[in-house]
Design a protein around this nucleic acid. Structure first.
Lengths: 203, 203, 203, 203
DNA sequence: GATTAAACGAGACGGTACGTCCAGTCTTCAG
DNA sequence: CTGAAGACTGGACGTACCGTCTCGTTTAATC
């Protein structure tokens, strides 16, 4: 009932499959050869598309890249290990491509190099990052409901901790994301802060 | 005795003032028009220098930029407010240019955009960031000695927290560095973690 | 007997008015903004047509342009001033749009610029230029019959003289076609050559 | 004494050899593969130059092409066969590359196709075409002095005849320049017109 | 009237060339 | 040898346009 009567716009419709095809081509190039191989010509060629088709969809290379990175970084996972610590480790491993080589290579590249002049912020965040934040927030709230931890003092800060540390350490000291580093951030930062509230008032 | 007898190198000596002049030109352009205005030609022209003089001093634009950003972000501050919380807030405010408009604008730009293809990591970190880390570490250790807090479980993580959050929030949500945000990170993250160790074992 | 019984092809018939509409649009653009404004998209848009309708009628832009230029440059004129000189001046003035401002502007443009990668030759010549040549040839032959001149030694050369000079001078020295220049070519080239044959054998 | 004291402009001077190198590359491509092979990238690559060096010297492809065609079409020939007819045939054959296959191919290409949107006129004419005209004019004047012909009524027209016919016939009927066609134009047009003046007043 | 098949406006598509910009290097002349 | 000036190679970017294709719609001629 919402829009059933809207007549389609005139002219040949966009090929929806091409969108995905282009984004996939960009990610492949990124994963295979690094950011310097991701030129608009190369993406177009690999996608079997013309450059015009790229620029019809995205105003610039940056916007294409932003979309490529976010659309190909998965959101939907079902995580339920029974403990908050286990849930967090598992979901972050999933988000950062641990155990998925192509994905991981691309993520690493992106962390350090992708954001050129990219107005990364407004492009990526709204669509994917907030969705991820919501997922993690749900895990924490479930732990609260379950009685595992008390409600955190500052949930927003808590949710940013792991991605912030990963980004910072990659950018300042080239430290890659690993299973171990994720565990360290969860055990050393998130869990202590989450448990603090529950523990402090006890005595 | 070691140096005075060495005969001076032949030819015209380097103009030491030029180094600073070039770096200043780079920072001005960054502050005025953003990172995309910082081209080597533009820097050379504004500094009244030739491009060769830039490349004689730095191997690449990245290195020049790294130097420019770090040299203009001061390290040496004497901070002693009596409490760890006060020390941390003060030193971070100093590092991020709170209260210095030109500096602050440049830092904001840098946070979001500078790292182009820049191998930012190896250029900036060794020289400035580690010096800053050492400063902050000293503040924390002084607080331990003073008995204000116990020795942190994972000092390395603690030292990265504030800069990591600043970087992440700027990059993903365009949040600028303010006096308030620094206080929030210190109060909501660093201090709770530092005090946790001291508090937990008490009962 | 050949055509009348052929059943018309099935489907919607071509809109004959559209042909003229498209050609007119092309000529308008040419006259208003020069050859660089005559893109297939622009022609289609101005004609209120789709590009497919253009390409259904002409195999390429060149052919469309050739048609546009020739269809709008009239062939059929009745010229009979009594002298060959008068006939030639009059017909060339007609062909080159002297006294027709829109037409003349288009012709000027065409002379200098139209022939892009255009295989101008095979497209235009057969249909219009040869018709024009035939017209001029008739004028000359009439003058021969009338006894005004003897049969020229090399008629083919004679017929090309004026258009060749107009084309060349426009292309090499930007000289536009005017009433005066046509008169000069006729009086200084065509007439002397036509009369020569008649005069030389006299003594 | 004219400019000996002018100090050279600062900076690295243009590489004069590169100019010729680029023009040669353009001509080679034109001669070998036709006008469609003459892209700016291809010219730059063959010349071992960057595209910036092409655009530093010429504002557009058209201007480069105009220079290439004119600079490589020779002017200086010593022609003295003893008769005007012989001189003209010989110099035109030289100008149109008869007996020089690479040159001739390029000229043919140029006649029909090169001038795309090119403001051919102002680029080519002043520098080379007028020089050629002067050469031919000298031949005619020498014949006048020698008493072979009388002074022509309209010298300017005479000088344009052969190139105009060549251009026109190529463009409208794809007729290539040959030894025979040059002879035909000289014998059928230029010589009769030149001799007419001398002959007519006799009786 | 229903069917059919082509023409129609609109605009997306692949491809190709253009002209611009910038990093990093090289070359000149002056000090 | 340093310095300013600026030319050099190389390569990516974003634009423009051609000729083709694919939609949904309209229009005759036929059934």
């Amino acid at each position: 009932m919402s829009e059933p009567l809207a007549s389609p716009p005139p002219g040949r419709p966009r090929d929806a499959a091409l969108d995905a095809n282009i984004l996939r081509a960009a990610m492949e190039l990124l994963g295979e050869s690094g950011i310097h191989a991701v030129t608009m010509d190369a993406v177009a060629q690999r996608a079997g598309a013309g450059k015009a088709s790229l620029y019809r969809r995205w105003k610039s290379k940056d916007e294409l890249l932003a979309d490529a990175l976010t659309l190909h970084s998965p959101i939907d996972v079902e995580v339920d290990t029974g403990t908050l610590r286990g849930d967090l480790v598992k979901i972050y491993e999933h988000y950062y491509g641990i155990g998925n080589h192509v994905m991981q290579a691309a993520v690493q590249e992106m962390l350090g190099n992708v954001r050129q002049h990219m107005a990364w912020t407004e492009k990526v965040a709204p669509e994917r990052l907030t969705a991820r934040r919501a997922k993690v927030r749900a895990l924490v709230e479930r732990a609260v409901v379950r009685g595992e931890i008390a409600a955190p003092d500052d949930m927003d800060l808590l949710l940013d901790l792991v991605p912030a540390m990963i980004l910072y350490r990659y950018n300042t000291r080239s430290q890659k994301v690993t299973r171990a580093s994720i565990a360290r951030f969860v055990d050393g930062l998130v869990m202590p802060l989450a448990q603090k509230a529950a523990r402090a008032p006890q005595p």
